[in-house]
């Protein structure tokens, strides 16, 4: 499949930071106790929804005029789903737009907190676990052909090992005694690896799989289906995000065309967890006596990709991702990290590019200056601050503003994505209809990704042409079955005609 639809879904953690009790009035302390990721969350997430509704931004329920969706998920986590995108660049722009939108809502919720006399400050963290061991996801969606789904096991070794460039890094809660010795890192490369228990699973909040098999009809584009990948970490780095989405799409394209033999891990879930703590370790694979490291497995996929694209046409974006992949694996080959977690040699400058390496570099800098151990709560606190979306208090955001991390898209693309949908998917129709209907005497209902309904608040004249066709005098339903369809002037004309009619009433 040379044309593909992509999208991501990011859950964020809300963190209510209170001033010390001595700085609070006596009446407030009783209700708002303890700085927390898990207390007061329902109220805090409700404030975000209030802030969104107060923005006068075109909305239809949870859907926005940029085609994306913002809502509060299980556990009171705010979640942003990007609109359907047709390029990796669009996915990056729209995921980062989601980050900006959430941060904007947090800032506006701060104003509502002041009005309600709620002390403290609200923060949104884009990561995958809180200090109490709860996890929340960063999910990826790829439109794939039935042929790829039949052979989906071929992507598993790739997904297990891509954490060496896509991991966000974390200081683990507890270091199991067995996790020590040569090659073991004092930190984990992946945030989500500890929470995955199966290769395939239809569960999302427990017994998680690398791939989620729960069927949700979000596409009826031919026979193509959605591949829902849930083992990934949330990326702050645009570079790591581009690699994660771009390389996964390359591997899917090869699987659809016939990838050939790929060595499968004998114990895939264990390999996923151990690679996170010991990325240079060797793991048993079928048919290879000596086993493979994560880097070797990635190199096998890269070699296949280089061979594949020597005989298949590649888009400009695919060529760029291929080049990035090759450069990054070379950088990882030459990256030297001491057993105490100090980066000794980084000729590929991965500490500007990959989240887990950037974070290791930052935490080491703080450890050395303050003579702190990896388990010190100050260091754990900085680990979380890396993911804070607030430009005033977020560690990654500060690195970005100082020019200490590499970017792969222009800021203008992110600002545009906050307002406008991608131009070449059905998100354009959804966003266009939401925008056109905003401020009119109608209610717009987007019950799913495939359709949108406009209901007139006042009864519309039953004699206009549309009403006769649909035998409905106060509603219009637009089906968005084809995710590739970004241009449907006939549909938009019908919508405008209906809205004009509503305005006449």
């Amino acid at each position: 499949m040379e044309e593909r639809i992509f999208g991501t879904e990011c859950e964020y953690a809300l963190f209510h930071q209170l001033p010390p009790p001595s700085a609070q009035g006596s009446g407030k302390t009783a209700k708002w106790s303890g700085t927390s990721f898990s207390e007061n969350l329902q109220e805090m997430s409700h404030l975000l929804v209030c802030a969104l509704r107060g923005q006068n931004r075109p909305l239809a329920g949870e859907f926005l005029a940029n085609g994306g969706r913002f809502y509060i998920d299980r556990g009171s986590h705010p979640e942003y789903a990007t609109p359907e995108c047709r390029s990796v660049a669009d996915v990056i722009a729209h995921e980062k737009a989601g980050d900006r939108l959430v941060q904007k809502l947090v800032e506006e919720a701060g104003g509502l907190m002041a009005e309600k006399d709620i002390p403290g400050r609200l923060h949104a963290f884009k990561n995958n676990h809180d200090p109490r061991g709860n996890t929340y996801g960063s999910h990826e969606n790829y439109l794939v052909s039935p042929r790829a789904m039949e052979k989906i096991q071929q992507i598993i070794p790739f997904l297990i090992t891509r954490q060496i460039f896509a991991g966000a890094g974390k200081i683990p809660h507890l270091a199991p005694p067995a996790f020590s010795g040569e090659d073991w890192l004092p930190f984990a490369v992946s945030q989500r690896a500890d929470f995955v228990e199966h290769v395939l699973s239809d569960r999302a909040s427990d017994a998680r799989g690398i791939i989620n098999t729960r069927k949700r009809e979000i596409t009826r584009s031919g026979d193509n289906v959605r591949l829902h990948v849930i083992l990934g970490d949330s990326n702050m780095s645009e570079y790591a995000l581009k690699l994660k989405i771009g390389t996964t799409a390359l591997v899917l394209r090869m699987i659809e065309d016939g990838l050939g033999d790929i060595p499968a891990f004998l114990q895939p879930v264990q390999a996923l967890k151990v690679i996170s703590r010991r990325p240079a370790g060797v793991h048993a694979v079928e048919g290879a006596g000596s086993g493979h490291t994560a880097l070797e497995v990635q190199s096998i996929y890269l070699e296949k990709a280089l061979g594949y694209f020597s005989s298949h046409a590649a888009t400009g974006e695919e060529k760029a991702v291929l080049c990035l992949w090759e450069t990054t694996l070379s950088g990882l080959k030459n990256l030297r990290i001491s057993p105490s977690g100090v980066i000794e040699d980084d000729p590929g400058e991965l500490s500007r590019k990959l989240d887990w390496v950037i974070k290791a570099w930052l935490l080491n800098r703080a450890r050395e200056k303050k003579n702190l151990d990896w388990s010190d709560p100050h260091i754990k606190h900085l680990d979380f601050r890396y993911h804070d979306l607030d430009p005033e208090t977020g560690l990654f955001e500060r690195c970005a503003s100082l020019g200490l991390v590499d970017r792969v898209i222009e800021e203008e693309a992110i600002l545009l994505a906050m307002e406008a949908p991608p131009h070449n998917t059905r998100a354009r129709l959804r966003g266009g209809i939401i925008g056109e209907a905003w401020g009119k005497d109608v209610e717009v209902l987007v019950e799913n990704w495939e359709s949108i309904r406009i209901i007139a608040k006042s009864k519309v004249d039953g004699m206009h042409p549309f009403a006769r066709q649909r035998r409905s005098v106060n509603g219009l339903k637009a089906n968005l079955n084809d995710p590739f369809e970004g241009c449907n002037e006939a549909l938009l004309k019908r919508v405008r005609r209906f809205l004009d009619k509503c305005d006449e009433v």
Binding site: K370, L382, L402
Partner: peptide, 28 residues
């Protein structure tokens, strides 16, 4: 220049550390 950037980063980290921990100790 790089030196100035790193100095600004160190100042920022210092500020974050000073501003702060029970939440991060409980796990132990």
């Amino acid at each position: 220049d790089k030196k100035k950037q790193l100095q600004q980063l160190d100042n920022f980290i210092e500020g974050v550390l000073q501003e702060a921990l029970e939440e991060f100790k409980q796990v132990e």
